[in-house]
Simulated assay, not measured.
Amino acid sequence: MSMSTLEACVFAVIFIGFFGIIFKKNLIMKILAMDVMSTGVIAYYILVAARGGIFAPIVDADQGAIAYADPVPQAVILTAIVIGFSIQALMLVGVMKLSRDNPTLETSEIEKSHTP
């Protein structure tokens, strides 16, 4: 696949997640859509950071001056994955607590029941 095709697919995933957050009414589906969008953003970051012809940053005495991969994007992606997982877990706990008071997780029904 060409780079522009991969970028189009990644942007499609981001937009699917974005529109899922906006148009889905169930809270669980909103959380899953946010996870899809987060996955798309991480995939785009990896796509931008990917370069051909570079090697792992392991220095060997026999190697001369070659192009090494920058380890910072890898660390940023691992941090983003961990933070995304913890945010998703926190939101699911909030939905579990909300489900104790409401028989449904539809946002319109929750808003109706808590309107003064």
Rank of each mutant, 00 (worst) to 15 (best):
A43R: 10
Y44W: 13
L92S: 08
V93G: 02
P57W: 07
G52C: 03
V48A: 06
M37Q: 10
V36F: 03
T79V: 15
M37Y: 04
N102S: 01
T104G: 04
T104S: 15
L92P: 00
V72I: 14
Q63V: 14
V59H: 12
A49T: 01
V82C: 04
L90H: 09
A50Y: 09
P71Y: 11
V72P: 01
I46D: 00
V82P: 02
D62A: 15
G52K: 14
A89E: 00
L90P: 01
K24L: 11
A80H: 07
K25W: 07
L32P: 02
I87E: 01
I28V: 12
G52D: 09
Q63E: 06
A89H: 02
N26L: 07
S99C: 04
V82R: 08
S38M: 11
V41I: 12
V82F: 08
S38A: 13
I31Q: 06
P103C: 07
P73D: 06
L98M: 10
A61H: 13
A49C: 05
D35C: 06
V36Q: 03
L78E: 12
I42D: 04
G84T: 07
V36Y: 02
T104V: 08
L105G: 06
V41Q: 01
Y45G: 04
D60N: 15
S38W: 10
G52I: 05
I54R: 11
T39F: 13
T104L: 10
I66E: 11
M37H: 00
I54N: 10
A43I: 13
V41G: 03
I31D: 08
I66Q: 13
M91S: 10
S99H: 10
A49S: 11
V95A: 06
M96S: 10
R100M: 09
R51W: 04
I58T: 12
Y45V: 06
A56N: 10
D101Y: 13
F55R: 15
M37F: 05
D70G: 01
N26A: 03
M34C: 09
D60M: 14
I81D: 05
M34Y: 11
A61C: 13
G52Y: 12
A69Q: 08
Q74G: 14
F85C: 07
L90I: 11
V76A: 15
M34W: 09
